[in-house]
């Protein structure tokens, strides 16, 4: 555990909690892509099946349980409790265009050809693109609430900090995982455009709105 890894995890946790609180307090999931949230629930489920097979640490287990629990709670709030506020018309990204190729890639490129390992790889690949429905929704409506941009910033920072963590682990432990690194780079690159808008607009007190 190094500082990048820890702050990455905390950033991820912050993102998840910001989103839950935003929906809960405003009693509305307007502007939030339910499809992205379903993909994240799938990501956590596929990756953390090792909860049932191996114990790493109290920290590891509790974070996994919190992530999975919050992911399903978010999906429940969007598709059940506050369904009336869900903006399905603007959430029109075709997720099968992500899930099918990513599933194929996980079967083809993995560390070990075993069910758990393929599911882990699938979750790594899927996570890297799971935010696309949300970004697509923002580009379609041309704007995002400020609280939604804070959520996206924390979520983007999490994988960016993991990249630093992997550089650290490579230098100090000689450890690297090419699958995680490449997927993590892809994931971070997808946020670059958003990071730019966040710094130039939201941090200067303006609402994030895209030119028509």
């Amino acid at each position: 555990m190094n500082i990048f890894r820890l702050t990455g995890d905390l950033s991820h946790l912050a993102a998840i909690i910001i989103l839950l609180l935003k929906i809960w307090k405003s009693r509305s999931c307007a502007g939030i892509s339910g499809k992205s949230q379903i993909l994240f629930a799938i990501v956590f489920t596929a990756r953390y099946l090792d909860l049932l097979t191996s114990f790493i640490s109290v920290y590891n287990t509790s974070m996994k349980v919190i992530y999975i629990g919050c992911a399903y709670a978010t999906v429940y709030l969007i598709y059940a409790k506050f369904r009336a506020t869900y903006d399905g018309n603007h959430d029109s990204f075709r997720v099968e265009f992500l899930v099918v190729p990513v599933g194929g890639l996980a079967v083809l490129i993995n560390h070990t050809f075993s069910p758990l390992e393929i599911l882990w790889t699938f979750s790594i690949y899927l996570e890297s693109v799971a935010i696309l429905p949300q970004l697509f929704m923002i580009s379609k409506t041309g704007e995002a609430e400020t609280i939604t941009t804070h959520y996206l910033f924390c979520l983007g920072m999490y994988r960016t900090l993991y990249l630093f963590n992997w550089v650290w682990r490579f230098y100090f432990e000689g450890f690297f995982d090419m699958i995680a690194i490449v997927a993590g780079l892809v994931q971070t690159v997808l946020y670059c455009d958003f990071f730019y808008l966040y710094v130039t607009k939201v941090l200067k007190g303006k609402k994030l709105s895209l030119p028509a």
Binding site: I56, S57, N60, M63, K64, H111, Y162, A180
Partner: peptide, 10 residues
């Protein structure tokens, strides 16, 4: 083993 070491990450 390389693959297992990443599993301590989230």
């Amino acid at each position: 083993k390389q693959a297992n070491q990443t599993k301590d990450e989230l």
